[in-house]
């Protein structure tokens, strides 16, 4: 091959026919985009990943062991008979997934549409907008699951998950992450001008959800005026469901069902809205 010759002429490599490309993209496009997101994550994601596991573990030490010395000494009954460590372990698991979701479904979406316009590269390929959205969601979900699994393993080592069904809480956390993250993604994909919205989401939504969702104390110990925050919070629904699995929290089966329906319902609604926004924004 002479220097600078177009490779196709001389090389023996042949790309498959455009029809094959299109057919494959129609079937597997979401996976192709998920693969791309994972590749990018692999490049820079380790510190983020370590942080997303390290953060709940640090809280687990500080609260579950340090603060527990004040709490457990006074009353065990306040936490349904389990020690404080066991009580907060699933809450930190779920909160952590939700916090990761608040990062993954906000700035990267702006980045895709506006800053570095990374969504528009695949958009010129056979992929369709819905697949780009789905790929991003799938890759993020995988990340939540991974971080939740690693954190859960640590919780289990502490003996803070007495039930044999405790591992299900990692899946619950992943779903809770999507339950919060997908509506956020729908919102993020509708933003055209960045004026600090995500900082506000972080401070006025994520932090209150973390602090007022029965994370560090039962929701009942809050006055009714703020208890509603828990009822509409993916963190609370996820945490309570996680507690059912890790230590067999006793609650009405109806309530357990409500948790499941709430988490899946908000995630599904968020996904539907996101798809719609992506199609509208990229097809106009």
């Amino acid at each position: 091959m002479t220097d600078n010759q177009l490779p196709t002429a001389a090389g023996t490599l042949r790309a498959h026919a455009p029809e094959v490309s299109a057919g494959r993209a129609r079937r597997w496009g979401s996976f192709y985009y998920a693969e791309q997101v994972l590749r990018v994550m692999r490049g820079y994601g380790w510190s983020v990943f370590l942080y997303s596991v390290g953060q709940p573990v640090a809280y687990l030490f500080a609260m579950g062991i340090g603060l527990a010395s004040l709490v457990d000494a006074n009353n065990l009954a306040a936490f349904g008979g389990v020690n404080y460590l066991t009580f907060i372990a699933p809450a930190l698991l779920v909160s952590s997934a939700v916090m990761t979701a608040s990062g993954d479904f906000s700035y990267p979406i702006m980045d895709g549409f506006k800053w570095r316009r990374v969504f528009y590269g695949p958009h010129a390929s056979p992929l369709v907008p819905q697949q780009i959205a789905a790929g991003h969601i799938m890759a993020s979900a995988l990340k939540f699951l991974l971080q939740s699994a690693v954190y859960f393993a640590i919780v289990a080592m502490f003996g803070a998950s007495p039930s044999p069904w405790g591992w299900v809480s990692a899946i619950v956390a992943t779903v809770a992450g999507l339950s919060f993250g997908l509506p956020l993604m729908a919102y993020a994909s509708s933003i055209t001008k960045d004026s600090g919205q995500f900082a506000l989401v972080q401070r006025f939504i994520v932090v209150p959800l973390f602090l007022f969702s029965g994370t560090f104390f039962p929701l009942d110990s809050l006055p009714l005026g703020v208890r509603w925050i828990g009822w509409i919070s993916p963190v609370w629904h996820g945490t309570q469901l996680g507690r059912v699995f890790t230590y067999g929290l006793e609650e009405s089966p109806v309530l357990t069902l409500v948790h499941v329906v709430f988490l899946l319902g908000t995630a599904a609604a968020g996904w539907t809205l996101t798809r719609r926004r992506f199609v509208r924004r990229m097809g106009a």
């Binding site: 490779p7 090389g11 490599l13 042949r14 790309a15 498959h16 094959v20 490309s21 057919g23 494959r24 993209a25 597997w28 496009g29 192709y32 985009y33 693969e35 791309q36 590749r39 990018v40 490049g43 820079y44 570095r116 316009r117 990374v118 528009y120 590269g121 695949p122 390929s125 056979p126 992929l127």
Partner: peptide, 29 residues
């Protein structure tokens, strides 16, 4: 709209994946 978080060569390979092209083709290509 290149992917600035990926290396130069990775940009080409990742883009080829959107067409469902196999890595055995994409690497030399």
């Amino acid at each position: 709209n290149l992917d600035e978080e990926l290396k130069v060569r990775e940009n080409l390979i990742v883009y080829g994946r959107y067409f469902g092209l196999p890595l055995s083709y994409l690497r030399p290509k």
